[in-house]
Simulated assay, not measured.
Amino acid sequence: MRAAFATGFDDADPLAVLTIGDAPEPTPLDGWAVVEVRASALNHHDLWSLRGVGLRKEQLPMILGCDAAGIGPDGSDVVVYPVVYTEKGSFSILSEHYQGTIAERVTVPAYNLVPKPAELSFAEAACLPTAWLTAYRMLTTRGRLETDGAVLVQGAGGGVATAAVLIGRALGARVYATSRDAEKREKIAALGATALEPGARLPERVDVVIETVGEATFEHSMKAAKTGGRIVVSGATSGHLPRVDLRRVFALQLEILGTSMGTPDELADLMALMARTGVRPVIDSVVPFSDVRKAFEHLHSGDIFGKVVIDHTA
């Protein structure tokens, strides 16, 4: 079957070790299922894999990709939940210990198959399992954002941050979002957020801050949170050792909460919200599998807004 996989590691030029070619058919373990992939979506995790982050040489070749939607073994439309748990309680996402989704077929535990609502296309559904699920959990399970609440999204333009803007709006919140890039601020404003420059004073203090940037924005996140507010962290792209004013933490009773990914039930709840409200992921481009290398090149360029999706039927 055709697939996109890592055949080596190259930190300086990750695309040099990307191979598009034939891969062995997946052999499901006991309790696992094979999915016919109809669409997959790229994440920066795929580029990090090509750089050697999270992989060892003895694991190569490794099929890339965490996100996918397709046809389950019973013929139903499904979305692939990308986290695989072990009996010892450890976990990994697809393309780390188990082969990934950028292939004609992928095998995953049967419990990882979440029914796809008819309202969502395969391309739209393929955008959800990693970035969108993370954003949804940040806002709901961890952030406890209420209808008519307020949320600040730092670094809007990235996958999780952009998803948080749209999900926050779908949940009925007032959404503020920051970006250094004027063009991205315009695009974020078009999605319904109040777009601001980093560090700008907000019209109000917020209930929840979505923090994926880290050192560069964390002081602003602390100042923007209201008494009892939650700062939910899922990344630190600018650095992971910010200064934290503990006086503000205890005086305002702030919560600093970490999170990663989500659960199959949360993925189902996210898709139900999207089906009900009509919110859809921002798709930068849909690339046929025959041009999958161009999809990786586009992601690597950094000049994207939204998800890069691969159409496995083309």
Rank of each mutant, 00 (worst) to 15 (best):
F5M: 12
T7L: 01
D10P: 03
A12K: 15
T19R: 15
T19S: 11
D22Y: 05
D22L: 02
E25V: 09
P26F: 08
P26T: 12
L29S: 12
E36W: 02
V37F: 05
R38F: 02
H45E: 08
H45W: 07
L47P: 03
K57L: 00
E58Y: 02
G65S: 13
P73M: 06
D74Y: 11
G75A: 15
D77L: 05
Y81A: 00
P82D: 05
V84W: 03
E87M: 01
S92C: 05
S92W: 09
I93D: 02
E96C: 00
H97Q: 02
E104L: 00
V106M: 04
P109V: 07
N112L: 01
V114S: 10
A118K: 15
A118H: 14
S121Y: 00
A125L: 01
W132L: 01
L133N: 00
L133Q: 00
T134E: 01
T140Y: 04
T140C: 05
R142G: 00
R142W: 00
G143Y: 09
G149H: 14
G149Q: 13
V151C: 13
V153H: 10
G157L: 13
G158T: 15
A161E: 14
V165Q: 14
I167F: 09
G168I: 14
L171E: 08
A173R: 12
Y176D: 14
T178A: 14
D181R: 14
R185P: 06
K187W: 15
A189L: 11
A193T: 12
A195N: 13
A195T: 09
E197L: 07
P198Y: 08
G199Q: 10
E204K: 06
D207V: 06
D207F: 11
T212L: 07
H220D: 12
G229D: 10
R230F: 04
R230W: 05
S238W: 11
S238L: 03
G239L: 04
D245T: 10
I256T: 06
G258C: 00
G258L: 01
G262A: 00
P264K: 07
D265P: 00
M271E: 09
A275F: 08
G278D: 13
V279E: 13
P281K: 11
D284E: 15
D284I: 11
D291P: 07
R293L: 06
F296K: 04
D303W: 10
F305P: 08
F305N: 10
G306F: 09
K307W: 11
D311F: 03
A314L: 09
